[in-house]
Nucleic acid binder design. Structure first.
Lengths: 359, 359
DNA sequence: ATGAAAGCGCTAACAT
DNA sequence: ATGTTAGCGCTTTCAT
């Protein structure tokens, strides 16, 4: 340990001790003045603060965490910060955290369990006071259990997890999907596809367990609507693994041939964008040749021609609410876990019409 | 310090000492095995690792940082993570950081100097090994100086800062703006407006110092093109403070009345979106009634009707390159600071046409 | 109100 | 190869 507290350029950090010496008081007194706790006389406080200022003292949050056991930091693990959904949810959480005096550490899981495990490991190692996670899997929950086992408060958002008894904040995906899909069915569509990028080992069948609960619920709502519309084998209309095949490629496949679909429900706005592009590429007009609806009121859905009808989620609020619940837990709230379900709302635009050739 | 290492639920953390005792070795040996450094016999390593596993040992990264002086963490301060530009740049940086074994801590500055100061303070307090920042001001640089003074490596991205001698990664904004604006001027437009949300105390005049260097450079390029086109008083065509007035409101103002502009250069894709909406609201057709160009190849610019002609920036690369430079500095690179200027490239779509009533 | 000293969990000399 | 010990910067008893 030749230069323990040395920075890259070889300069040593200014510590409480340095300030104490400069102010002619004990370390403890200096620390009290600097950390704004305990009792310090005004005169001494001024002297200490002055010295700190002069020396350019910067508190070491790590050392503080070491002795107090609290980091005043929350962690958040999202699929991909570039996804506008996660960006907005993160912003909602960050604002609440900041208002409560907490910092936020962000990690991407890439919707991959191993990457998620690493991300969580890092956060735990950094001793965050609590963790917000949109888990890569609602079924394989060891990653989440490890957080609970480590004794750290955990709040799930966007997705719940089976058998993990913690607070969760999600949207009413099933009813939202039902409403969205009904628009299509009621317009007369029979060949309707649901597209998700969710990774899944096989083709979808009714007994399948879709790893992400939010997607699973949307599928349920979708099936509800098809069933209500008297459409047989509704499960055959669900198409997963769009990431593997490529959204545009899958959309192109579904939109061509004798069995081409006349309507599509996109599981999120990124998928809808791929479908939109594929349709344009094929020379198909929305809504004449294809009716398209999606989740999330992304920027482009309002300015595209035609505007896309979407089910909007209160994304900021999801993040904010999750952060609020987490902070409450960090502060010692011991009530039984709650699951908050936030409403979605329909934004009708011009992307839905009856099918050209009914059937 | 009644329960120093206790977690929220009162459980005590498992430490190196605990593992050492369980494995029947000294703390140092256990630490060596756990931290994967120093020399440990295979037999002992297995024993230690086994014990650690059994006890559920989780390394404390904070303690490690305390003794090594390195956190293996980089900080990044952006204007707003919800802005796709920053989301992408952050992702680029995060990927490079992760590949090099660094974590990333994110803060939003809201393009506000005070908030930025706080954010930087937090990062410094957490002893990040280095800092990436897109500064709220390229002119008032005390925040950045404080980083340099603290001896932490600093890399600027998207924006440079006057008199702060550190690595920077920016895009070729002036030439990009010149090219983009020339499209308009060459098409015959004379009443062309440049819109930015940049806060500025007064109306723009030639001597004004625009706080954000990237915007300042875009303005220069814009003026270059107007001047080359023989347009007088080009500076009167620059409109700042669009955030204060509201982008749509400002666009509406500029697009109506006898002096209505026939073309607009939007300083970023969010502004362009506001202009697009305002135009639609006014019943103006692009490009017949209004030619619109912007920076950044955002999703919507490709699916809107008509497609918007944009100057695309290598956003990921900006973040990635910045992170690379920073990591190099953290590792001790002492070469003089460099400024990397990345090329922009034009994506021509259908939003530019000659003005309806020339002049 | 102030000071002395111990301790947070870890690493790094320095022995052995 | 392993153990002993000091120390990172801070907070917190416990005295005074």
């Amino acid at each position: 340990m030749s230069e323990p507290a040395a920075t890259g350029n070889g300069r040593r950090e200014v510590t409480v001790s340095d300030v104490a010496v400069a102010a002619g008081v004990s370390k403890a007194t200096a620390a009290r003045a600097l950390g704004d706790y305990g009792a310090v006389s005004d005169a001494v406080r001024d002297r200490v603060l002055g010295a700190a200022d002069r020396l350019g003292y910067r508190p070491n949050a790590l050392a503080r965490t070491m002795s107090t056991g609290r980091s005043n930091t929350l962690g958040i693990v999202v699929g991909d910060i570039e996804n506008p959904f996660f960006a907005q949810a993160t912003r909602g959480a960050a604002d609440v955290a900041a208002a409560a005096g907490f910092d936020l550490i962000l990690s991407n899981s890439d919707e991959d369990l191993e990457t998620e495990a690493k991300a969580i490991g890092v956060q735990l190692a950094k001793r965050v006071d609590g963790l917000l996670v949109a888990s890569a899997s609602s079924v394989e929950t060891e990653n989440l259990r490890s957080v609970v086992d480590a004794g750290r408060p955990l709040v799930l958002f966007d997705r719940t997890a089976q058998g993990v008894e913690v607070d969760s904040v999600i949207a009413a995906n099933r009813s939202g999907a039902r409403e969205l899909t009904s628009l299509l069915v009621d317009a007369g569509h029979r060949r309707v596809a649901f597209i998700s990028t969710m990774t899944h080992p096989t083709d979808f069948d009714r007994s399948a367990v879709v790893a992400t609960s939010s997607v699973a619920e949307r599928i349920e709502g979708f099936l509800d609507a098809l069933t209500a519309g008297g459409i047989e084998h509704p499960e055959r209309h669900v198409h997963l693994n769009a990431r593997r095949e490529g959204v545009e490629r899958m959309a192109t496949r579904l939109l061509t041939g004798p069995e081409a679909v006349t309507a599509i429900v996109a599981s999120d706005s990124l998928i809808a964008l791929g479908v939109f592009r594929a349709a344009r590429e094929l020379g198909l007009q929305i809504p004449r040749d294809l009716s398209l609806v999606a989740f999330d009121d992304a920027d482009w859905t309002g300015v595209a021609t035609p505007g896309i009808t979407v089910m909007a989620q209160p994304i900021h609020e999801i993040g904010a609410e999750a952060a609020e619940l987490l902070i409450r837990r960090v502060r010692g709230d011991g009530r039984p876990p709650v699951t908050r379900v936030l409403k979605q709302h329909l934004v009708e635009r011009q992307s839905v019409a009856p099918p050209a050739s009914p059937g």
